[in-house]
Amino acid sequence: MVLTVSGKQRTTGINKARHGAAERHFLREAVLVFLGGLAGAALRVVLANFLNFSDFGFYNWNWTYLFINVIGSFAFGFLAALFRVRFPSMRNRWYVFLAEGAVGSFTAFDLVFSQISLIALQPEVWILILYVGVNFAACIGCSALGVWWGSGKRPAKKQRKSPRHSPLPARRKQGAAAARHGY
């Protein structure tokens, strides 16, 4: 007896196998994110319990979470640029574990707003505006610094204006390529 498989059946089988592999890949990544989240949250809890910035007391400002958010923003920006921009061929698992899991769980967004509500109870409005501005600017600035450092890009060097360099097409081409890649 000869068993024959039609083209449609074969295609369905291949699609099912692909779908199963994608599902397994997604589940593996979700488990890695969970494990990274455990590590990041544990680090946050330890830092929040042991870091004491009470000497820098200033209108109920929570310096501990500001410090945690700044460090986390820099680390996430650095890792995102390193894995996504500079070395895109590097293994995705490390990015998922370190950045999405550990650093994502390390920083706290909603606790900043809890603190804002406490500061808002005080009569001085400028303190509230300053706290929001400092949090906002410090985290985005550190994240941008991390992205810049992680991507490894340097501003393009200026070409020397000596006549020796300009007429050579090979050198001009080389300079243009370097400028295009941001080095």
Binding site: G72, S105, F109, D110, L111, C139, V147
Partner: peptide, 24 residues
Amino acid sequence: VCAGFLCGYSSFAVISTVAALLAR
């Protein structure tokens, strides 16, 4: 809920990195 679940669910680092990457 706030220091646990919601801190993991929302992240300052992710928002600021998305903002930094959008500026590239």
